[in-house]
Simulated scan of single mutants.
Amino acid sequence: MTFLASFASGLLRLRRGPWEMLATFLIALGVVMLMQPFFLWAYTWSFLVTLVGTVMFIIVSHFPE
């Protein structure tokens, strides 16, 4: 099974690993959006993206392995 297929399967079965990876990606994306100096829209949405990733990480940390 390829990585993408196993990742999608984990998301659909509500497993912790893939959802934590997605939440971590959102947190990192929000931080990058916050620190970049080029696009005002990215800076404007950075707090919301970081917040969604953080709340998602807290929720999915209770999912089964």
Rank of each mutant, 00 (worst) to 15 (best):
G53C: 01
M56R: 13
V60N: 02
L22D: 01
F3H: 10
F38A: 13
S46G: 04
V32C: 09
M21F: 12
G30V: 02
M1C: 09
G10T: 02
W41S: 12
V52I: 14
E20G: 00
T44M: 11
L40D: 12
A42R: 07
A23N: 03
F63R: 05
G53Q: 06
V31D: 01
L12C: 11
G53F: 00
S6C: 01
Y43I: 15
G53N: 01
W41A: 13
L11A: 09
L51V: 03
P18T: 04
A5T: 15
G10M: 00
G17D: 05
Y43C: 07
P64H: 05
L40F: 09
F3K: 06
Q36V: 12
S61A: 11
L14P: 01
G17P: 05
L14C: 09
F39W: 12
F38P: 01
A5C: 04
S6W: 02
A28M: 05
F3C: 00
V32H: 03
M33K: 06
L48A: 11
T44Q: 14
I59V: 15
F25P: 00
S61K: 12
M56G: 10
M35C: 11
W41I: 15
Y43G: 14
M21W: 08
A8F: 12
L12S: 14
L40M: 08
F25E: 04
L4C: 05
G17E: 06
T44K: 15
V55P: 00
H62T: 13
T2R: 13
L14W: 10
T50R: 08
P64K: 06
V55F: 09
Y43N: 13
E20I: 08
T24L: 08
A23D: 02
R13Q: 10
A42P: 04
H62Y: 13
